[in-house]
Computed example of a mutant assay.
Amino acid sequence: MRRTTVAAVEALGGTAVALPLDTGRLETFPDFVAQVDRALSDTWRTGTLTGLVNNAGLSRSAPVTETTEAVFDELLDALFKGPYFLTQALLPRLADGGAIVNVGSTSAHPGGISSGYSVYGAAKGAVEVWTRYLAKELGPRGIRVNSVAPGPTRTRLGDDGFDRYPELVAPLAASTALGRIGEGADVGRVIAFLLSEGGSWITGEDVTASGGFGL
């Protein structure tokens, strides 16, 4: 998957380096940051980042009454604690005037509540609130921070869940104003906009990118 992503970026004329990271394993962050430093220096001849996208993905389904402490910790570590402390570690390398985009979920919104995803939704809700605090604290450096909340989107989450269970697609599409579930590129374009000069006067916001899911 990493090689495929790098190849896709290069085919568009860009430059990419893929570095593996498990956001649920905070003990690996120092080595990862060192790899980032080397990649910035060796590939881009710089020591700074202009943007950061926190897009950690992990999903487990269980009713509140059946959620174990292990599942709770796994989700919170990967979806919130990990991005929180990874951002903290990378902030000295983020250029003033840069941008951060945190990927949340409509699972944290009233219209996106689905039984069995209380921990996932709560973690994504924490990401949304954290985004506003980051925007406030990093404003003096000119760093913009926003979150994006996708609705049902075809990704690799849940072990390619929509490909494995195609029967789930139709009812979700029927609940979406634009008549289909999202694709990765739909959300990616919103993220790219928020990172770009076009989003230069937007910070502290949660942008729903769901095609009108739940309307």
Results as ranks from 00 to 15, higher is better:
Gln35Gly: 09
Gly13Glu: 04
Val53Gly: 11
Leu49Glu: 01
Val33Gln: 09
Glu74Ile: 13
Glu66Pro: 15
Ala18Val: 00
Thr46Val: 07
Leu75Ile: 11
Asp22Gly: 03
Val33Arg: 11
Ala16Asp: 03
Val71Cys: 15
Val64Glu: 08
Thr23Cys: 06
Thr23Val: 03
Gly13Asp: 01
Glu66Arg: 15
Phe29Gln: 00
Ala39Phe: 06
Asn54Leu: 00
Asn54Cys: 00
Ala39Thr: 10
Gly51His: 10
Leu19Asn: 05
Glu27Ala: 11
Leu21Val: 07
Asn54Gly: 02
Pro63Cys: 14
Thr43Met: 14
Thr67Gly: 04
Glu74Asp: 12
Asp37Gly: 11
Leu40Gly: 05
Ser59Lys: 13
Phe32Gly: 00
Pro20Glu: 01
Thr68Phe: 08
Ser59Trp: 13
Leu52Val: 10
Glu69Thr: 13
Ala62Phe: 13
Leu12Gln: 14
Asp22Lys: 05
Thr23His: 05
Gln35Asp: 04
Ser61Cys: 13
Leu12Trp: 11
Leu21Met: 06
Ala18Asp: 00
Val17Ala: 04
Ala62His: 11
Thr43Val: 13
Val71Asp: 14
Asn55Ile: 04
Leu19Pro: 08
Asp73Ser: 12
Glu74Met: 14
Phe32His: 03
Asn54Met: 03
Thr46Lys: 09
Thr28Gln: 05
Asp31Ser: 15
Ala39Val: 07
Ala70Tyr: 03
Gly51Ala: 11
Gly51Phe: 12
Leu49Asp: 01
Phe32Gln: 01
Leu19Asp: 09
Asn54Phe: 01
Ala16Lys: 09
Thr65Pro: 12
Ser59Thr: 10
Leu49Tyr: 03
Pro20Asp: 00
Ala70Arg: 07
Leu52Thr: 06
Arg45Asn: 06
Ala56Val: 07
Ser59Gln: 12
Phe32Val: 00
Gln35Leu: 10
Pro63Glu: 10
Leu49Ser: 05
Gly13Ile: 01
Thr23Met: 05
Ala18Asn: 00
Phe29Trp: 05
Val64Cys: 09
Thr43Ala: 14
Leu19Met: 00
Leu49Pro: 04
Ala16His: 08
Thr65Lys: 08
Arg38Met: 15
Thr50Gly: 08
Leu26Asp: 01
Thr15Ser: 14
Leu40Lys: 03
Thr48Asp: 06
Val53Asn: 12
Glu27Met: 11
Gly13Leu: 02
Asp31Trp: 14
